[in-house]
Nucleic acid binder design. Structure first.
Length: 305
DNA sequence: GTCCAGGCCGACA
DNA sequence: TGTCGGCATGGA
């Protein structure tokens, strides 16, 4: 991590392959997103550090990311944790030069890495959020998934109001561990999903599932197998979590319908490619499947930066 | 009305 | 190990 305190704010110095605007495009893809706000080129996010609510205002000038604290300057210890959080959120530890080198010569990716140069996987550092957001999104369209997340967050999350705008924290697993299935059913979650989400919350509340223990596994097969042991977590969800929470660049959610549609569109296919065909297409992506997938997702929503 | 969404589970061969 | 029905809902 490369950062410094600068007066009341902090500054981060990301690696060369970083483009804040491209990341904002991804972050701004849904009007229904409630976990961050984008306004005038700044990204606002509420986080909780050492039991303290901290509102971040994140901007970028040149290649320097600057984080301001609208609610007041927190302690140096908190600022350091915020720096680590932002570093993780934008996956800045990842050296993308190998990805770009590979992608420039790849028939599927070469145009994408030109179009979206500097885009990084926007991570979900909170394991509970990563798992349950994936479960929410299973087998429903993305707008409806965002609608359900919004209801979930506004029902069970913590909030803070600043200058008339409400900022939300994702619900904590210990709170969700104690609710009843019907409380989610009434938000239009299916019975099955309500069960899964509450079970995940309970498993995390008891310490049965923790980010720490999964992070320290050096074998990705082991991580995947452990995740698959959680009810409601299949191959797609396990890969998604490995990609978005643990930033495993080799995670490859081949079952993802978005990935399938992106490939169909880019290659002009008559139908969606099968899982085996996707494995073949991605044969050259070894080690970078997660980034290839993320850039392909990006290609599904063409927008101006 | 039909089909598809950032799937998963349990049952059955 | 591979396949299939059921789940539930919103949007095109």
């Amino acid at each position: 991590m490369n950062w410094t305190c600068h007066g009341s704010s902090i500054e981060l110095f990301p690696p060369r392959e970083f483009h804040f605007g491209e990341c904002l495009v991804f972050l701004g893809r849904s009007e229904l997103e409630v976990l961050h706000q984008i306004k005038d080129g700044y990204l606002y996010k509420l986080v909780k550090v050492d039991q303290e609510l901290v509102l971040l205002k994140i901007g970028c000038a040149g290649q320097t990311i600057r984080v301001d604290f609208p609610l007041g300057t927190p302690s140096e210890q908190v600022r350091e944790k915020v720096a680590a959080y932002v570093w993780e959120w934008f996956d800045l530890e990842q050296n993308l030069s190998g990805f770009y080198e590979m992608a420039r010569q790849d028939k599927v990716l070469h145009q994408l890495v030109q179009n979206y140069y500097g885009l990084r996987i926007i991570r979900i550092p909170d394991l509970f959020e990563a798992l349950t957001w994936a479960i929410i999104g299973q087998q429903i369209n993305l707008p409806f998934a965002y609608t359900l997340k919004k209801r979930f967050v506004e029902q069970f999350g913590e909030k803070l109001v600043y200058e008339g705008t409400v900022f939300w924290l994702y619900p904590a697993f210990d709170k969700i561990a104690a609710i009843d299935i019907n409380e989610l059913r009434s938000l239009q979650f299916t019975t099955r999903k309500a069960e899964y989400i509450i079970e995940v919350a309970k498993a995390m509340a008891t310490g049965q599932v923790t980010k720490e223990s999964l992070r320290h596994m050096n074998d990705r097969q082991h991580v995947q197998k452990t995740l698959l042991g959680i009810r409601g977590v299949g191959l797609w969800t396990a890969d998604y979590v490995m990609m978005k929470c643990f930033a495993d660049p080799a995670a490859f959610p081949v079952a993802d319908v978005g990935l399938q549609n992106a490939l169909k569109s880019r290659l002009g296919l008559q139908r969606k490619p099968t899982v085996d065909e996707i494995m073949d297409l991605g044969a050259n992506w070894e080690g970078w499947q997660a980034y290839a997938t993320f850039y392909l997702w990006r290609s599904l929503y063409e927008q101006a930066v």
